[in-house]
């Protein structure tokens, strides 16, 4: 019972804040609402018994990614005035397009019947031990390969931020 209310509460927060992300004029408000959305998502993860992911989600998204975002916004000092006025036609078109996408998705997925739901047999799948075993077992290769991804991202970010010597 409790968890259902929680679900609806978190869902409401997530969607409401997601909307505000899009429609806030000031980028920093967008970022802050996005953080709230992320927290709501983390709450959902908790509800879904994925504690590890919830914590990682907070650390990575709220703790690192969004900090970077806000950092950049501050550094660039993006205020309300920066965003120029866009023609309403484009805005309406964008909204309509997005809404159509949403409608299509919702309409297509509304009727989804999950035929092959296995029994609520394994509450421990979100536990770190399980995840660790899978990650370093079956997913060893992607784990190793993702180091290349990080290296390249790191080199790339450093390269782009470096002052070019001329």
């Amino acid at each position: 019972m409790m968890s259902q209310y929680l679900f609806y509460f978190l869902t409401f927060v997530a969607i409401f804040c997601a909307l505000l992300v899009v429609f806030s004029k000031n980028p920093i408000y967008s970022a802050l609402f996005l953080i709230v959305t992320f927290f709501a998502t983390a709450g959902h993860y908790f509800l879904l018994n994925a504690q590890f992911l919830a914590a990682v989600h907070v650390i990575v998204y709220a703790g690192a990614i969004m900090v970077l975002f806000i950092y950049v916004i501050m550094m660039l000092n993006l205020n309300r005035e920066v965003e120029p006025h866009k023609s309403t036609a484009i805005k309406i078109a964008a909204t309509v397009c997005g809404c159509i996408l949403g409608l299509v998705l919702v309409a297509a997925l509304r009727e989804t019947e999950m035929s092959a739901i296995s029994e609520y047999s394994n509450p421990g799948i979100g536990l770190i031990e399980r995840l660790g075993n899978v990650l370093f077992g079956a997913y060893m290769v992607p784990f190793e390969i993702s180091t290349v991804l990080f290296l390249s991202a790191m080199v790339g970010a450093v390269f782009l931020s470096k002052k070019s010597i001329h």
Partner: peptide
């Protein structure tokens, strides 16, 4: 940097 990025 360039070369490393290409190789990655």
């Amino acid at each position: 940097d360039h070369l490393a990025l290409i190789l990655f």
